[in-house]
């Protein structure tokens, strides 16, 4: 999902400037602001053809980029797809339109476990898009030991030293380190945070990179392990069959990205249509077939690729289920500590 396009920031700034001058609320338009490499072209075509609407996709590379941009205003987007832990900020900052997806015709298709999430009680704002986990992606040709542990990244075996990539996602990585030291993400327990920092500082020299996009470096052999998202692990396995995905027994992070309509959307009706459209089993399946993550829609498996139905990256094996938890948004105070640890680590 979160494949980086470095030109995103530059091009999206330029694009947003264009939008300011050009955005007209034509009936047949919809501007979607989504993660890079995360929107199925087939999905877009299907929506365009069904509703006679022209869809424009703009990419972002992190929740923070999206939040900062939308908060600044003048962006011209109608739809964004933020992660669960950021959703409370989007709501409390007044960035979202209360479209009441829970009253839409397709809401009956949402799987019961996703109808009343903590981050959007009653689903008054958001519609499930994709969900997954952050785990260990390992080339088992290089390391054949147990991969269901975050020690792969934090206390790596000899074979993997100097061949590990870690996604540069502050919240996920520090959260994982906190699980590793026996605490929880977003804790304000300074002793635990200190331990997590020490673990990260000691582990970092054994990593080779902290970057987005793992398919190519796995294929070329530049990396042999990575902390990354499950869907990308599966996409990598399609090209490099020896790549497997581990669920850390110390605890791992679950996430869900949801479709929301922005308060200053120009094409509110189309945006609402899109939310309802994303709750159709077939649409959800098309999104999953592209990004290779699970969705939250009943009956979508019927339209999904066969490999997804059995993939251990997507269907969490029962023994690993209890170790996964949704992270919340850390308080601003804890975020400052996170940020301090992160800068210290990146120096």
């Amino acid at each position: 999902m979160r494949q980086l396009k470095n030109s995103i920031i530059i091009s999206s700034v330029a694009a947003s400037m264009l939008f300011v001058s050009q955005s007209v609320s034509a009936a047949g338009e919809l501007n979607i602001y989504n993660w890079g490499d995360y929107t199925s072209p087939e999905l877009v075509t299907k929506f365009e053809e069904t509703y006679n609407v022209t869809v424009t996709i703009t990419d972002y590379d992190s929740n923070d980029t999206a939040l900062a941009k939308v908060k600044a205003g003048g962006h011209g987007f109608d739809i964004a797809i933020p992660s669960a832990n950021y959703m409370p900020i989007w709501i409390s900052e007044g960035l979202l339109l209360k479209t009441r997806p829970d009253q839409m015709s397709n809401f009956k298709n949402v799987l019961p476990e996703w109808t009343n999430p903590d981050w959007d009680p009653g689903r008054h704002y958001s519609v499930p898009y994709q969900w997954g986990s952050v785990g260990m992606v390992v080339n088992t040709d290089v390391y054949s030991g147990d991969i269901n542990t975050s020690a792969i990244a934090f206390d790596p075996p000899e074979e993997l030293v100097g061949k590990i990539n870690v996604a540069p996602e502050m919240g996920d990585i520090i959260g994982m380190a906190l699980y590793y030291v026996g605490s929880e993400p977003c804790t304000d327990d300074k002793a635990a945070l200190k331990k997590a920092r020490d673990v990260l500082m000691a582990a970092k020299p054994k990593w080779v990179s902290m970057t987005y996009g793992i398919k190519e470096p796995f294929a070329s052999g530049d990396i042999a392990a990575s902390v990354y998202w499950n869907g990308d692990a599966m996409r990598t396995r399609q090209e490099t069959p020896s790549v497997h995905y581990g669920y850390p027994k110390e605890g791992y992070v679950l996430w869900m990205d949801s479709v929301v309509v922005l308060k200053d959307a120009q094409n509110v009706e189309n945006a609402k249509l899109f939310q309802n459209f994303m709750m159709e089993p077939e649409s959800a399946a098309i999104a999953s077939n592209f990004a290779m993550y699970a969705n939250g829609i009943k009956g979508s498996s019927e339209f999904m690729l066969e490999i997804l139905a059995t993939a251990p990256e997507v269907q969490i094996p029962a023994e690993h289920l209890p170790n996964g938890r949704f992270i919340e948004m850390c308080s601003a105070e804890v975020n400052k500590l996170y940020s301090g640890i992160w800068t210290e680590m990146m120096k």
Binding site: N165, M170, G171, V208, S209, M210, T211, T343, M346
Partner: peptide
């Protein structure tokens, strides 16, 4: 590989996750 920051990356960090 994004592991060691340079100035441009440090500045970007402050406007993003920082």
């Amino acid at each position: 590989g994004g592991k060691s920051l340079m100035l441009g990356n440090l500045i970007e960090l402050q406007f993003g996750q920082g």
